[in-house]
Simulated scan of single mutants.
Amino acid sequence: MTDLVEEVAADVFFARGDDVNWVLLRDGKDVTVVDTGYPGYRDRFLRSITAIGSTPQRVAAVLITHAHIDHIGSADHLAHAYGTPVYTDAVEVRHAHRDYLEQASPVDVARNLVRPGTVRWLSRVMRAGVLSRKGAPTAQPFPTEDELDLPGRPRPVPTRGHTSGHVAYHLAAARAVITGDELVTGHAVLAGTGPAVLPAYFNHGDSAPALARLEELDADVILPGHGAVVRLPIREAVARATAQR
């Protein structure tokens, strides 16, 4: 469609920022947004909605995979401007409200500056708002743990590891899964591309149970929080990611 938005399945759109992705699910003019990018991505995030023929006013809900600033940058903007509900896992709600913060510390990042690509990545994300400690105070728990009555019919799948309340979203009709940061396919601090787990200093729990939960899904289109779309059975993607750990 555009350099910003790619239709990867019927009415399922993958939007890529410089360093993080988000997903839009369309039903007519109505849209579900999954994650929203950095605060500095506001303009391109809003443009991604109009690029698929909708408007910010027609966003039915924002779903959050986890409450790191690169995934919630415009969530509260939609909530305050248009009354858009913002949903995430009940555990992650407390993280979104900043009752606590699970995020790589400046010391963690400094210790890893020798990784190729890290300095350039850090320069970009500093401009995009990575140092913001602002959460998403409007976030609330899902109204149901089953398939949500929203465009795209996403089903939350608890995948707790990257953060304590991280959640993926299964799109049964599209045989797709939005994996957030539990399973990525690229990142500036990783040496290569393809299914992978982020370095340990980015994670705040054991990713093994979360990956096992992803393996159970009927999906062969992987929509990660970082990296490109991968068309691969999720079980194979998890095996590849695990082998690289």
Rank of each mutant, 00 (worst) to 15 (best):
D27F: 15
G165C: 08
A212Y: 01
R120F: 10
V33L: 15
G225L: 00
A228D: 05
A110V: 02
R235P: 04
D43M: 07
L122G: 13
T118M: 14
A176L: 07
V119I: 11
L78V: 09
A219C: 01
D220I: 03
A81T: 12
N21M: 15
D76Q: 09
V62I: 14
L214C: 00
D43G: 10
W22K: 14
L24H: 14
E6W: 01
T65M: 08
E147V: 15
R245A: 03
A136S: 14
Y41F: 15
P137L: 13
L4F: 04
A15V: 15
L223D: 01
V31D: 14
D43R: 12
N112S: 06
M126P: 09
A241E: 01
V62N: 01
A212L: 04
H95F: 12
V5R: 03
E7I: 09
L214M: 02
G129I: 11
G37E: 14
A60L: 03
A241C: 02
F142P: 08
G17M: 12
H66D: 13
L25G: 13
Y82T: 10
G192D: 14
G73I: 09
V33G: 15
P156T: 08
R26F: 14
L190F: 03
N112W: 01
G37F: 13
H226L: 02
F14E: 13
G17Y: 12
R213I: 06
A60S: 10
D146W: 12
A176H: 10
L211E: 00
I64G: 05
R133G: 15
H204D: 04
T84H: 07
H71C: 12
R245C: 00
F14L: 13
A168R: 02
Y38D: 11
T163K: 05
H80Q: 14
T138D: 10
Y82G: 09
T159Q: 05
D18T: 15
Y41I: 12
A237N: 00
H226T: 02
V189S: 10
H166W: 05
H187R: 07
W22S: 15
L223I: 02
Q103E: 11
L190T: 02
E216R: 01
T55D: 10
W22C: 15
R115Y: 05
P39S: 12
P158A: 00
L198M: 10
A176Q: 08
Y87E: 09
Q140D: 12
Y82P: 09
A110N: 05
T179A: 10
A104D: 04
D18W: 13
L63F: 04
P154I: 09
L131N: 12
D43E: 14
P154K: 06
E182Y: 05
H97C: 02
Q103W: 10
S74L: 07
A136Q: 06
D11W: 08
N203H: 00
Q103F: 11
G152L: 11
Y38I: 12
D19Y: 15
E6N: 06
R235S: 11
H97G: 02
V167W: 06
A60K: 02
M1A: 08
V167I: 11
R111N: 06
A110H: 01
L171C: 10
I72R: 03
T144N: 07
V93I: 06
I178P: 08
A15W: 11
Y82K: 07
T55W: 02
E145K: 15
D218P: 04
G53P: 01
R153G: 12
V91E: 11
T185L: 09
D30W: 13
P199Q: 01
L113P: 04
Y201D: 00
L63W: 00
R235C: 00
